[in-house]
Design a protein around this nucleic acid. Structure first.
Lengths: 185, 185
DNA sequence: GTCTATACGATGATAGAC
DNA sequence: GTCTATCATCGTATAGAC
């Protein structure tokens, strides 16, 4: 089984999930039918089902992709050599929010309420993001604020928690701004 | 058209929405069928459709009810004679969160992403709650902190915004704690 | 107003040709 | 691997009796 085939298979999968995400943005996770995704992706129903066991499987893969992309964006800011303070970090995170991704992200929150698999994905990604923020805050406390390592350990956690909470709230507000408003200025 | 009939009609409506909310908590807004609601409410499909035009109409009414109940709880705290500070207020709001209502609440967020009617309900209720928090914070700034009215006016808004954001984030975390965990301690 | 029974449409998923 | 065509199921909404 050559590697090339493996990567092509993966490309098809992302082609499907990306088309699915566009549909989700318009109609929501549940109201999106397989027919919608075939129309958006240009593929057929049969093709989709060779790459995903069923619709729930596809939704989970799409959710994982959207959340992972957000986590990656967050990772870029956390990896800088001059760590930004909490307020600056939060501002940058908010500025990097993409409205469409925000909407699908909030949809996954709702779905996580009833689908344990999606729930695990959401909490995993949230924990991962919070850990990144935590590292960033710790680096800032040490390098910029010149705090002692012992003090840093207990002060970083609540700050990271708050930054994440405010970020997620902003994600919600962005998702709730109507798509029609989005185009305006 | 006597008032008694009118109130009875309203009672039936709430009987239906409350049964619906219990179903939503278990299976989500979309995965809940009319059959589920008939089973939970003890009523028949025909009866439900005499009280609600269609399923979307029912979902909107249920969403309004859940969010309004949360707003009312918040209103109680804001109306006290000795206004609590922002931290204390937030702690109380969080302590008052009911897990089941949190789950359905987060589901409505996801639905608001695609259904304009639900979106309006969610932002209306959020604005209403934020205004209550704003009033509470203003009262606290004046009565406890003894700030000047002019200063209060510009300081209250950002504080209220943050309290609401942190409250909603906590709502999300509560909703994401699995129902199985909920029973434990 | 409430019920039972049902029509009708939509949708997830599969079979089989290419 | 991908397509077309199709099936079986489920779910909304309605009709008509009581």
């Amino acid at each position: 089984m050559p590697r090339l085939t493996e990567t092509r298979k993966e490309l098809r999968r992302t082609q499907i999930t990306e088309a699915a995400v566009r549909c989700f943005d318009r109609n929501g996770l549940e109201r999106t039918s397989i027919a919608d995704i075939t129309a958006e992706s240009g593929l057929s129903a049969g093709s989709i089902y060779t790459h995903y066991r069923n619709k729930a499987d596809l939704v989970r893969a799409a959710a994982r992709e959207v959340l992972a992309r957000r986590a990656d964006v967050l990772g870029e800011y956390a990896a800088g050599d001059v760590p930004p303070g909490p307020d600056e970090l939060l501002s940058r995170l908010i500025a990097a929010i993409d409205p469409a991704e925000a909407r699908v992200g909030v949809q996954t929150w709702g779905e996580a309420t009833t689908d344990p698999a999606i729930r695990d994905i959401v909490v995993d990604m949230t924990d991962r993001m919070r850990a990144m923020v935590h590292d960033c805050v710790m680096a800032w406390l040490v390098k910029v604020e010149h705090r002692a390592p012992a003090e840093v350990r207990e002060r970083a956690a609540p700050i990271a928690h708050r930054v994440m909470a405010l970020y997620q709230a902003e994600l919600l507000y962005t998702a709730l701004r109507s798509p029609t408003e989005e185009t305006a200025s």
